[in-house]
Write a protein that binds this DNA or RNA. Structure first.
Lengths: 186, 186
DNA sequence: TTCGCCATGTAATGTGTTACATGATTGT
DNA sequence: ACAATCATGTAACACATTACATGGCGAA
Protein backbone atom coordinates (compact mmCIF):
# COMPACT_ATOMS: atom_id res chain seq x y z
CA UNK A 1 0.00 0.00 0.00
CA UNK A 2 1.27 3.42 -1.03
CA UNK A 3 1.13 5.99 1.75
CA UNK A 4 0.53 9.62 0.84
CA UNK A 5 2.78 12.29 2.31
CA UNK A 6 0.10 13.18 4.83
CA UNK A 7 -0.55 9.53 5.71
CA UNK A 8 3.11 9.20 6.70
CA UNK A 9 3.02 12.03 9.19
CA UNK A 10 -0.36 10.97 10.58
CA UNK A 11 0.68 7.37 11.13
CA UNK A 12 3.98 8.42 12.67
CA UNK A 13 2.29 10.76 15.11
CA UNK A 14 -0.29 8.20 16.10
CA UNK A 15 2.59 5.83 16.85
CA UNK A 16 3.57 8.34 19.54
CA UNK A 17 0.07 8.21 21.01
CA UNK A 18 -3.65 8.69 20.20
CA UNK A 19 -4.59 12.11 18.87
CA UNK A 20 -7.38 14.07 17.18
CA UNK A 21 -6.94 15.63 13.75
CA UNK A 22 -6.61 19.03 15.36
CA UNK A 23 -3.88 17.77 17.69
CA UNK A 24 -1.99 16.18 14.80
CA UNK A 25 -2.03 19.51 13.00
CA UNK A 26 -0.89 21.56 15.97
CA UNK A 27 1.85 19.09 16.89
CA UNK A 28 3.04 19.12 13.27
CA UNK A 29 3.09 22.92 13.36
CA UNK A 30 5.53 22.80 16.26
CA UNK A 31 7.73 19.97 15.05
CA UNK A 32 7.70 18.48 11.57
CA UNK A 33 6.62 21.62 9.76
CA UNK A 34 10.24 22.61 9.23
CA UNK A 35 10.74 19.62 6.95
CA UNK A 36 7.27 18.10 6.41
CA UNK A 37 4.07 20.14 6.36
CA UNK A 38 0.43 19.10 6.59
CA UNK A 39 -2.71 21.20 6.25
CA UNK A 40 -6.27 20.55 7.40
CA UNK A 41 -7.31 20.19 3.78
CA UNK A 42 -5.10 17.09 3.65
CA UNK A 43 -5.38 15.81 7.21
CA UNK A 44 -9.13 15.35 7.58
CA UNK A 45 -9.74 13.60 4.25
CA UNK A 46 -6.67 11.42 4.86
CA UNK A 47 -7.87 10.49 8.35
CA UNK A 48 -11.07 9.21 6.76
CA UNK A 49 -9.19 7.24 4.10
CA UNK A 50 -6.88 5.66 6.66
CA UNK A 51 -9.83 4.67 8.83
CA UNK A 52 -11.61 3.18 5.79
CA UNK A 53 -8.44 1.23 5.00
CA UNK A 54 -8.35 -0.08 8.57
CA UNK A 55 -4.96 1.44 9.43
CA UNK A 56 -6.34 3.68 12.15
CA UNK A 57 -9.55 3.77 14.14
CA UNK A 58 -11.36 6.72 15.62
CA UNK A 59 -13.39 6.91 18.80
CA UNK A 60 -15.70 9.76 19.76
CA UNK A 61 -14.32 11.60 22.75
CA UNK A 62 -16.18 14.92 22.85
CA UNK A 63 -15.40 17.75 25.26
CA UNK A 64 -18.88 18.63 26.49
CA UNK A 65 -20.91 19.27 23.36
CA UNK A 66 -17.80 19.95 21.30
CA UNK A 67 -17.25 17.12 18.90
CA UNK A 68 -13.89 15.39 18.95
CA UNK A 69 -12.59 12.16 17.38
CA UNK A 70 -9.43 10.60 18.70
CA UNK A 71 -7.56 8.24 16.41
CA UNK A 72 -5.16 5.45 17.25
CA UNK A 73 -3.16 2.97 15.16
CA UNK A 74 -4.62 -0.45 14.51
CA UNK A 75 -2.36 -3.50 14.31
CA UNK A 76 -2.51 -3.21 10.50
CA UNK A 77 -1.60 0.48 10.75
CA UNK A 78 1.42 -0.20 12.91
CA UNK A 79 2.52 -2.86 10.49
CA UNK A 80 2.13 -0.54 7.49
CA UNK A 81 4.06 2.21 9.30
CA UNK A 82 6.85 -0.26 10.07
CA UNK A 83 7.06 -1.30 6.42
CA UNK A 84 7.33 2.31 5.31
CA UNK A 85 9.93 3.08 7.97
CA UNK A 86 12.20 0.26 6.77
CA UNK A 87 12.21 1.50 3.18
CA UNK A 88 15.01 3.83 2.06
CA UNK A 89 13.67 7.41 2.11
CA UNK A 90 12.98 8.87 -1.30
CA UNK A 91 11.41 12.28 -0.93
CA UNK A 92 13.78 15.18 -0.83
CA UNK A 93 12.57 18.53 -2.09
CA UNK A 94 14.17 21.89 -1.69
CA UNK A 95 12.93 25.02 -3.39
CA UNK A 96 14.49 28.32 -2.44
CA UNK A 97 13.58 31.60 -4.10
CA UNK A 98 16.57 33.33 -2.52
CA UNK A 99 18.88 31.02 -4.41
CA UNK A 100 16.99 31.60 -7.65
CA UNK A 101 17.28 35.38 -7.34
CA UNK A 102 20.92 35.17 -6.40
CA UNK A 103 21.58 32.85 -9.32
CA UNK A 104 20.16 35.39 -11.77
CA UNK A 105 21.52 38.47 -10.04
CA UNK A 106 24.41 38.79 -12.48
CA UNK A 107 22.06 38.98 -15.46
CA UNK A 108 19.34 41.05 -13.80
CA UNK A 109 20.84 43.32 -11.17
CA UNK A 110 24.33 42.55 -9.84
CA UNK A 111 24.06 45.26 -7.19
CA UNK A 112 21.38 43.27 -5.48
CA UNK A 113 23.43 40.12 -4.85
CA UNK A 114 24.79 41.06 -1.43
CA UNK A 115 21.36 42.15 -0.28
CA UNK A 116 19.86 38.79 -1.23
CA UNK A 117 22.65 36.98 0.60
CA UNK A 118 21.98 39.04 3.71
CA UNK A 119 18.27 38.32 3.49
CA UNK A 120 18.92 34.61 3.24
CA UNK A 121 21.19 34.76 6.27
CA UNK A 122 18.55 36.60 8.22
CA UNK A 123 15.86 34.05 7.33
CA UNK A 124 17.95 31.20 8.66
CA UNK A 125 18.89 33.17 11.76
CA UNK A 126 15.22 33.64 12.55
CA UNK A 127 14.46 29.99 11.89
CA UNK A 128 17.31 28.92 14.16
CA UNK A 129 15.89 31.14 16.90
CA UNK A 130 12.44 29.60 16.47
CA UNK A 131 13.91 26.14 16.71
CA UNK A 132 15.81 27.05 19.85
CA UNK A 133 12.46 28.11 21.29
CA UNK A 134 11.05 24.71 20.39
CA UNK A 135 14.07 23.10 22.02
CA UNK A 136 13.58 24.97 25.28
CA UNK A 137 9.97 23.83 25.51
CA UNK A 138 10.64 20.22 24.51
CA UNK A 139 10.68 17.72 27.32
CA UNK A 140 11.74 14.09 27.33
CA UNK A 141 12.77 13.96 23.71
CA UNK A 142 14.01 10.63 22.53
CA UNK A 143 17.48 10.71 20.95
CA UNK A 144 16.29 10.45 17.33
CA UNK A 145 13.74 13.28 17.37
CA UNK A 146 16.14 15.43 19.36
CA UNK A 147 18.73 14.84 16.65
CA UNK A 148 16.30 16.18 14.06
CA UNK A 149 15.70 19.31 16.12
CA UNK A 150 19.38 19.82 16.73
CA UNK A 151 20.05 19.42 13.03
CA UNK A 152 17.56 22.17 12.26
CA UNK A 153 19.33 24.54 14.63
CA UNK A 154 22.88 23.75 13.53
CA UNK A 155 22.09 23.75 9.84
CA UNK A 156 20.27 27.06 9.97
CA UNK A 157 23.13 28.62 11.90
CA UNK A 158 25.51 27.28 9.31
CA UNK A 159 23.50 28.87 6.51
CA UNK A 160 23.22 32.18 8.35
CA UNK A 161 26.97 32.33 9.00
CA UNK A 162 27.79 31.27 5.47
CA UNK A 163 25.67 33.95 3.82
CA UNK A 164 26.77 36.66 6.17
CA UNK A 165 30.33 36.01 5.07
CA UNK A 166 29.24 35.96 1.42
CA UNK A 167 27.29 39.18 1.70
CA UNK A 168 30.46 40.90 2.80
CA UNK A 169 32.42 39.28 -0.01
CA UNK A 170 29.85 40.17 -2.65
CA UNK A 171 30.56 43.66 -1.48
CA UNK A 172 27.91 46.31 -1.48
CA UNK A 173 27.13 49.68 0.02
CA UNK A 174 25.99 48.50 3.40
CA UNK A 175 27.98 49.93 6.29
CA UNK A 176 30.44 47.40 7.67
CA UNK A 177 29.26 47.90 11.24
CA UNK A 178 25.87 46.50 10.35
CA UNK A 179 27.44 43.27 9.18
CA UNK A 180 29.64 43.17 12.25
CA UNK A 181 26.70 43.57 14.58
CA UNK A 182 24.96 40.69 12.92
CA UNK A 183 28.07 38.54 13.26
CA UNK A 184 28.33 39.32 16.97
CA UNK A 185 24.88 37.90 17.60
CA UNK A 186 26.10 34.37 16.92
CA UNK B 1 1.44 40.51 -12.81
CA UNK B 2 1.97 37.32 -10.82
CA UNK B 3 4.74 35.13 -12.18
CA UNK B 4 4.43 31.38 -11.77
CA UNK B 5 7.37 29.37 -10.44
CA UNK B 6 8.23 28.27 -13.94
CA UNK B 7 7.88 31.77 -15.36
CA UNK B 8 10.54 32.96 -12.92
CA UNK B 9 13.13 30.48 -14.06
CA UNK B 10 12.29 30.97 -17.75
CA UNK B 11 12.54 34.75 -17.57
CA UNK B 12 15.77 34.56 -15.58
CA UNK B 13 17.38 32.23 -18.06
CA UNK B 14 16.32 34.31 -21.02
CA UNK B 15 17.96 37.28 -19.31
CA UNK B 16 21.23 35.34 -19.71
CA UNK B 17 20.56 34.93 -23.42
CA UNK B 18 18.05 33.62 -25.99
CA UNK B 19 17.16 29.94 -25.68
CA UNK B 20 14.71 27.28 -26.85
CA UNK B 21 12.44 25.47 -24.43
CA UNK B 22 14.65 22.44 -24.68
CA UNK B 23 17.74 24.47 -23.83
CA UNK B 24 16.02 26.07 -20.86
CA UNK B 25 15.19 22.62 -19.54
CA UNK B 26 18.67 21.19 -20.00
CA UNK B 27 20.36 24.24 -18.51
CA UNK B 28 18.02 24.04 -15.53
CA UNK B 29 18.89 20.37 -15.12
CA UNK B 30 22.54 21.32 -14.72
CA UNK B 31 22.12 24.37 -12.54
CA UNK B 32 18.91 25.41 -10.80
CA UNK B 33 17.50 21.92 -10.36
CA UNK B 34 19.14 21.63 -6.95
CA UNK B 35 16.90 24.39 -5.62
CA UNK B 36 14.33 25.10 -8.35
CA UNK B 37 13.04 22.48 -10.75
CA UNK B 38 11.10 22.78 -14.00
CA UNK B 39 9.61 20.06 -16.19
CA UNK B 40 8.56 20.08 -19.84
CA UNK B 41 4.95 19.81 -18.73
CA UNK B 42 5.34 23.26 -17.18
CA UNK B 43 7.89 24.85 -19.51
CA UNK B 44 6.13 24.60 -22.86
CA UNK B 45 2.69 25.80 -21.72
CA UNK B 46 4.36 28.61 -19.76
CA UNK B 47 6.40 29.67 -22.77
CA UNK B 48 3.17 30.08 -24.68
CA UNK B 49 1.55 32.06 -21.87
CA UNK B 50 4.55 34.36 -21.54
CA UNK B 51 4.58 34.97 -25.28
CA UNK B 52 0.83 35.72 -25.24
CA UNK B 53 1.44 38.17 -22.39
CA UNK B 54 4.17 39.86 -24.43
CA UNK B 55 6.97 39.18 -21.94
CA UNK B 56 8.94 37.02 -24.35
CA UNK B 57 8.94 36.51 -28.07
CA UNK B 58 9.83 33.45 -30.07
CA UNK B 59 11.41 33.23 -33.48
CA UNK B 60 11.60 30.12 -35.62
CA UNK B 61 15.18 28.95 -35.93
CA UNK B 62 14.97 25.36 -37.17
CA UNK B 63 17.97 23.05 -37.57
CA UNK B 64 17.29 21.67 -41.05
CA UNK B 65 13.77 20.28 -40.92
CA UNK B 66 13.90 19.98 -37.13
CA UNK B 67 11.61 22.56 -35.64
CA UNK B 68 13.04 24.93 -33.07
CA UNK B 69 11.74 28.12 -31.47
CA UNK B 70 14.18 30.43 -29.76
CA UNK B 71 12.79 32.84 -27.20
CA UNK B 72 14.13 36.13 -25.96
CA UNK B 73 12.96 38.70 -23.43
CA UNK B 74 10.95 41.65 -24.66
CA UNK B 75 11.33 45.05 -23.02
CA UNK B 76 8.16 44.31 -21.01
CA UNK B 77 9.60 40.95 -19.99
CA UNK B 78 12.83 42.45 -18.76
CA UNK B 79 10.86 45.01 -16.80
CA UNK B 80 8.67 42.32 -15.22
CA UNK B 81 11.73 40.24 -14.33
CA UNK B 82 13.32 43.29 -12.72
CA UNK B 83 10.21 43.95 -10.65
CA UNK B 84 10.19 40.35 -9.42
CA UNK B 85 13.90 40.45 -8.65
CA UNK B 86 13.50 43.50 -6.43
CA UNK B 87 10.81 41.90 -4.30
CA UNK B 88 11.81 40.09 -1.10
CA UNK B 89 11.91 36.35 -1.87
CA UNK B 90 9.03 34.39 -0.40
CA UNK B 91 9.22 30.80 -1.54
CA UNK B 92 11.13 28.47 0.70
CA UNK B 93 10.15 24.81 0.76
CA UNK B 94 12.03 21.95 2.25
CA UNK B 95 10.61 18.44 2.51
CA UNK B 96 12.91 15.67 3.66
CA UNK B 97 11.71 12.11 4.18
CA UNK B 98 14.95 11.20 5.98
CA UNK B 99 14.11 13.72 8.69
CA UNK B 100 10.56 12.42 8.96
CA UNK B 101 11.73 8.85 9.46
CA UNK B 102 14.38 9.89 11.92
CA UNK B 103 11.84 11.98 13.82
CA UNK B 104 9.59 8.95 14.27
CA UNK B 105 12.35 6.39 14.80
CA UNK B 106 11.92 6.41 18.58
CA UNK B 107 8.27 5.43 18.29
CA UNK B 108 8.65 3.04 15.36
CA UNK B 109 12.08 1.44 15.42
CA UNK B 110 14.85 3.06 17.49
CA UNK B 111 17.47 0.66 16.14
CA UNK B 112 17.08 2.21 12.74
CA UNK B 113 18.01 5.78 13.74
CA UNK B 114 21.74 5.49 13.13
CA UNK B 115 21.14 3.89 9.76
CA UNK B 116 18.88 6.74 8.65
CA UNK B 117 21.48 9.28 9.75
CA UNK B 118 24.14 7.46 7.75
CA UNK B 119 21.87 7.37 4.71
CA UNK B 120 21.24 11.09 4.96
CA UNK B 121 24.96 11.75 5.18
CA UNK B 122 25.56 9.62 2.12
CA UNK B 123 22.90 11.46 0.11
CA UNK B 124 24.51 14.82 0.78
CA UNK B 125 27.97 13.43 0.07
CA UNK B 126 26.81 12.30 -3.36
CA UNK B 127 25.10 15.64 -4.04
CA UNK B 128 28.25 17.53 -3.05
CA UNK B 129 30.24 15.39 -5.50
CA UNK B 130 27.76 16.11 -8.29
CA UNK B 131 28.01 19.82 -7.60
CA UNK B 132 31.78 19.67 -7.64
CA UNK B 133 31.45 18.12 -11.08
CA UNK B 134 29.27 21.04 -12.14
CA UNK B 135 31.86 23.42 -10.73
CA UNK B 136 34.69 21.85 -12.70
CA UNK B 137 32.75 22.25 -15.96
CA UNK B 138 31.54 25.79 -15.24
CA UNK B 139 33.40 28.56 -17.00
CA UNK B 140 33.23 32.29 -16.52
CA UNK B 141 30.69 32.24 -13.73
CA UNK B 142 29.68 35.59 -12.40
CA UNK B 143 30.17 36.01 -8.63
CA UNK B 144 26.52 35.63 -7.70
CA UNK B 145 25.78 32.38 -9.53
CA UNK B 146 29.12 30.99 -8.38
CA UNK B 147 28.10 31.78 -4.81
CA UNK B 148 24.97 29.69 -5.27
CA UNK B 149 27.01 26.77 -6.56
CA UNK B 150 29.55 27.08 -3.79
CA UNK B 151 26.76 27.20 -1.25
CA UNK B 152 25.40 23.91 -2.58
CA UNK B 153 28.76 22.25 -2.15
CA UNK B 154 29.55 23.63 1.31
CA UNK B 155 26.10 23.04 2.68
CA UNK B 156 25.94 19.46 1.48
CA UNK B 157 29.35 18.76 2.95
CA UNK B 158 28.17 20.27 6.21
CA UNK B 159 25.14 17.98 6.26
CA UNK B 160 27.21 14.92 5.40
CA UNK B 161 29.73 15.62 8.16
CA UNK B 162 27.02 16.43 10.66
CA UNK B 163 25.10 13.20 10.10
CA UNK B 164 28.18 11.05 10.04
CA UNK B 165 28.99 12.28 13.52
CA UNK B 166 25.39 11.72 14.65
CA UNK B 167 25.23 8.24 13.18
CA UNK B 168 28.11 7.23 15.40
CA UNK B 169 26.44 8.75 18.46
CA UNK B 170 23.00 7.31 17.71
CA UNK B 171 24.65 3.93 17.37
CA UNK B 172 25.46 4.19 21.03
CA UNK B 173 21.95 5.32 21.83
CA UNK B 174 22.71 8.94 22.73
CA UNK B 175 22.85 11.93 20.38
CA UNK B 176 26.18 13.74 20.36
CA UNK B 177 24.83 17.11 21.43
CA UNK B 178 23.44 15.65 24.63
CA UNK B 179 26.75 14.08 25.53
CA UNK B 180 28.53 17.38 24.92
CA UNK B 181 26.10 19.33 27.06
CA UNK B 182 26.45 16.83 29.83
CA UNK B 183 30.24 17.14 29.63
CA UNK B 184 30.03 20.95 29.76
CA UNK B 185 27.96 20.91 32.91
CA UNK B 186 30.47 18.80 34.81
C1' DT C 1 20.58 0.97 -38.60
C1' DT C 2 20.43 1.93 -34.20
C1' DC C 3 21.33 4.83 -30.37
C1' DG C 4 21.60 9.08 -28.12
C1' DC C 5 20.34 13.50 -28.35
C1' DC C 6 17.59 17.51 -30.11
C1' DA C 7 12.97 19.31 -30.04
C1' DT C 8 8.00 20.10 -28.95
C1' DG C 9 3.99 19.21 -26.93
C1' DT C 10 -0.52 17.06 -24.30
C1' DA C 11 -3.25 14.28 -20.88
C1' DA C 12 -3.87 12.02 -16.71
C1' DT C 13 -3.05 12.06 -12.24
C1' DG C 14 -1.68 13.45 -7.98
C1' DT C 15 -0.73 16.83 -4.36
C1' DG C 16 -1.45 20.65 -1.66
C1' DT C 17 -2.80 25.33 -0.14
C1' DT C 18 -6.17 28.71 0.78
C1' DA C 19 -10.30 30.36 1.80
C1' DC C 20 -14.49 29.44 3.47
C1' DA C 21 -18.02 27.60 6.69
C1' DT C 22 -19.62 26.13 11.19
C1' DG C 23 -19.86 25.89 16.02
C1' DA C 24 -18.29 25.01 21.21
C1' DT C 25 -15.36 26.17 25.23
C1' DT C 26 -12.34 28.72 28.29
C1' DG C 27 -10.34 32.60 30.34
C1' DT C 28 -10.37 37.64 30.96
C1' DA D 1 -19.17 39.89 26.04
C1' DC D 2 -15.21 38.98 23.65
C1' DA D 3 -11.09 36.84 22.05
C1' DA D 4 -8.44 32.92 21.65
C1' DT D 5 -8.39 28.36 21.04
C1' DC D 6 -10.50 23.85 20.24
C1' DA D 7 -12.55 21.16 16.59
C1' DT D 8 -14.11 19.49 11.99
C1' DG D 9 -14.72 19.71 7.41
C1' DT D 10 -15.39 21.19 1.99
C1' DA D 11 -14.59 23.64 -2.50
C1' DA D 12 -11.92 26.09 -5.64
C1' DC D 13 -7.84 26.66 -7.40
C1' DA D 14 -2.99 26.16 -8.42
C1' DC D 15 0.91 23.57 -9.25
C1' DA D 16 3.84 19.76 -10.80
C1' DT D 17 5.27 15.22 -12.30
C1' DT D 18 4.86 11.40 -15.23
C1' DA D 19 3.87 9.11 -19.06
C1' DC D 20 2.79 9.38 -23.51
C1' DA D 21 3.24 10.84 -28.40
C1' DT D 22 5.79 12.45 -32.40
C1' DG D 23 9.66 13.07 -35.27
C1' DG D 24 14.52 14.84 -37.11
C1' DC D 25 19.62 14.70 -36.84
C1' DG D 26 24.40 12.87 -36.38
C1' DA D 27 27.71 9.46 -35.33
C1' DA D 28 29.40 4.78 -34.76
Amino acid sequence: MELSATAKVILGMLAMGPRSGYEIKSFADHSTRYFWTASYGQIYPELRRLADAGLIEGTDEPTGARQRTVYRLTKAGRHELGKWHELPPEVFEYRDEWMLKLFFAGAVDPERAAEIARGRAELSRVTADELREVESRAEGNDPASYTVLRFGIDFNEFIADWFERQAAALGEGVPLEKLEKRAERV
